[in-house]
Structure formats: structure tokens, C-alpha cells
């Protein structure tokens, strides 16, 4: 159960599925490359945390969920929200702080919420949404539903008390929740071995007597397989899981440290980029004859168009009206 899983290229991939996975990873990547440009132009304020490099986790995991399953995330959540099916135009508008954004421009990059997609939000406080995921799973079970909650978080959340409190409760109350840690090895600038006594994060599952698995987070099919098993456990047995997807963020923690050069070497980043999840999957699809170059180029073109539309939509959306400043504090 502890092994890091990698699917061999021999695995037969369905062409429709391949198209869907590749397209979603490309959308997340292209959307964020564009968001970075928009940040540089000052259209997005404050901080912006890019998911680039980690796309296989969000896309692979979401691909085994039902539409009525829930997802909840931390602040590096653009990719999770898009994978769950949110309209890229409204996500971009939210990043721009405009009135047509998912939260009418008031949530911003770190607080994307989409009720229509059962996306329970991005959360800026590290570790703080883990008990919220348990609460949502409790509510599902309480009402006799068979949905599951997928909760993304980073390795930085593991030393927080709420990580441990949540795993304990999820195990104790047998909740249909899948905790998936995207271990990108750095909590902002602090390397995992400088922050955790136990760096094999999946092993914390043993303490709480729940299933724990590690997976190669750069391999979208491997992620899919491991999350699918966890979803089955949650749906059929209402048993929680702790998964660890080993991944890497190619950019800095936020746009404030774009090169992340203080705490990572150029060599390390270069080596990890060789394992770009999009590149790996693209090559596998070509090699296996699942998709052709022309088909992939069409996908890329479609995604580029979607992202351009998203930017145009966000640009055209007005700023929230001034009177909204004091609205929605209490029920009016």
C-alpha cells in the first residue's frame, strides 16, 4: 500500500478519456500562464499562487469523481476549481476582482467558490479547511447521501494541528472524505525535511488506522487509479483515506518569489521539469497511438481560445459597484 504507483506505458488508454485529461491539464496550465501575465499587468492584485507543475493531481483526482461529489481546497486552487468544471471566464473574472467573478469579485484568487459545481472553496489559511471537509462529509453521511468529499492540501498543512484533528475525526466517525496531500516538497520556502519529522506523509494514516497511499503525482493515470480506490472506500464503506501525491511546483510559492531561487537549486527545478505531467502524458498518448499530433494541436488550440475568451470576459466585466462594499455582511 505504501508504494508510489506509476502506470506503465503499456496500459491501454481510452482515447476519449485521454483527450479529456490532456485537455483539462492544458486548460489549467494555459489559464495560469495567462493569469501570471495578467498579474504582471496589474490586473490581479496582491498574491497569486500558481499550480503549474501539479496539474496531474487535480485533473486525475477529479476525473474519478461524480458531478455531485464535493471538492475543497487550499489557496493554490485554480486548477482544482477548473477541473471541477467551473467556467474559466468566471474564474478569471474572480481573479480580476470583477463583478462577474464566481464570488462577484470579492473572493479573489484564494477564495474561489462554486456552489453549482459542489466546489466548497479555496482557503487561504493553511490547514484550516481540513476540518471543514470532515464536516461536509459528516453532513453527507448524516443525510444518507453517497457523495464523497475530496480535500486537497499541501505538505505545509501537515504540521498544523488541524491536519491531525481532522484525520482523527474522519477515522473516528468513519467519514466519506479523501484527504489528498499534494506534496510539492516546499511549504513556501521551507523544505519538507526541515518541517516534518515524518516526511512520508501517507504514513500518518497508520496512526489513525485509515488507508494511506502514496502516488506519483506527475502521472495523471496513476493519480486516477489511487483516487478511484479511495473514492470507492469512501462511497461504499464510508472509510476515509489519506493519499500523498508526490509532485512539484514549477513556479515560486507566489508571484512574489517567481524564481524560488533562495531555497531551490536551478538543477533541481530543471530535473523536475523533465517530469512535466503534461509532457509525460502527451508523450505517452502519442507513443501508444492514442492521440495524434494533429489531435493534440486541436486540443491546444481549443484551450488557448477558451483562455483568451476568459481574459476578454474578465476584462469586459465591470468592477463591483461601490454599494456592494457593505453588502452581504448580514441577511438583508
Amino acid at each position: 500500500m505504501a508504494q508510489t504507483k506509476t502506470i506503465t506505458p503499456a496500459t491501454k488508454i481510452d482515447a476519449d478519456l485521454a483527450r479529456r485529461l490532456l485537455s483539462q491539464m492544458l486548460l489549467s496550465r494555459r489559464f495560469e500562464e495567462k493569469a501570471a501575465e495578467m498579474y504582471a499587468l496589474g490586473k490581479i492584485g496582491g498574491f497569486l499562487h500558481l499550480y503549474i507543475g501539479q496539474e496531474a493531481v487535480g485533473v486525475g483526482a477529479t476525473s474519478v469523481l461524480r458531478a455531485d461529489d464535493y471538492a475543497i481546497s487550499a489557496y493554490r486552487e485554480h486548477g482544482h476549481c477548473l477541473a471541477k468544471g467551473s467556467d474559466p471566464r468566471r474564474v478569471m473574472a474572480e481573479l480580476f476582482g470583477r463583478r462577474d467573478g464566481l464570488s462577484k469579485g470579492k473572493g479573489g484568487s484564494m477564495h474561489l467558490f462554486d456552489k453549482s459545481k459542489n466546489f466548497l472553496g479555496g482557503h487561504a489559511i493553511v490547514g484550516a479547511h481540513l476540518p471543514i471537509a470532515a464536516g461536509a462529509a459528516f453532513a453527507i453521511k448524516y443525510q444518507g447521501g453517497d457523495q464523497v468529499v475530496l480535500c486537497y492540501f499541501g505538505d505545509g498543512a501537515v504540521p498544523q494541528g488541524e491536519f491531525h484533528e481532522s484525520l482523527n475525526l474522519a477515522a473516528l466517525w468513519k467519514l466519506p472524505v479523501i484527504y489528498i496531500c499534494e506534496n510539492n516538497r516546499y511549504a513556501m520556502g521551507t523544505a519538507i525535511h526541515r518541517a516534518l519529522a515524518q516526511t512520508e506523509i501517507w504514513r500518518y494514516a497508520e496512526t489513525y488506522g485509515i488507508a494511506g497511499e502514496a502516488v506519483d503525482g506527475m502521472d495523471v493515470l496513476a493519480v486516477r487509479e489511487v483516487v478511484a480506490r479511495a473514492v470507492e472506500r469512501a462511497r461504499r464503506e464510508q472509510a476515509p483515506s489519506l493519499l500523498e501525491a508526490r509532485t512539484y511546483r514549477f513556479r515560486g510559492h507566489s508571484m512574489r518569489d517567481p524564481s524560488a531561487a533562495v531555497y531551490r537549486t536551478k538543477e533541481e527545478v530543471g530535473r523536475e521539469k523533465e517530469r512535466d505531467p503534461i509532457k509525460l502524458f502527451r508523450e505517452r498518448c502519442l507513443k501508444g497511438g492514442v492521440l495524434t499530433e494533429a489531435e493534440i494541436r486541436t486540443l491546444e488550440k481549443e484551450v488557448n481560445d477558451l483562455v483568451d475568451e476568459a481574459v476578454a470576459f474578465a476584462d469586459a466585466s465591470p468592477e463591483p459597484p461601490l454599494e456592494w462594499l457593505t453588502a452581504e455582511v448580514y441577511k438583508e
Partner: peptide
């Protein structure tokens, strides 16, 4: 600032 928990960056200056 007004009695709101936050303004959103687009309206920070007004708050």
C-alpha cells in the same frame, strides 16, 4: 474602515 470583514481588492481603496 466600514463594518465589513473585507472589501475585495477592487474596493479596498473605498474601504
Amino acid at each position: 474602515a466600514y463594518d465589513v470583514s473585507f472589501a475585495g481588492f477592487a474596493r479596498e481603496k473605498a474601504n
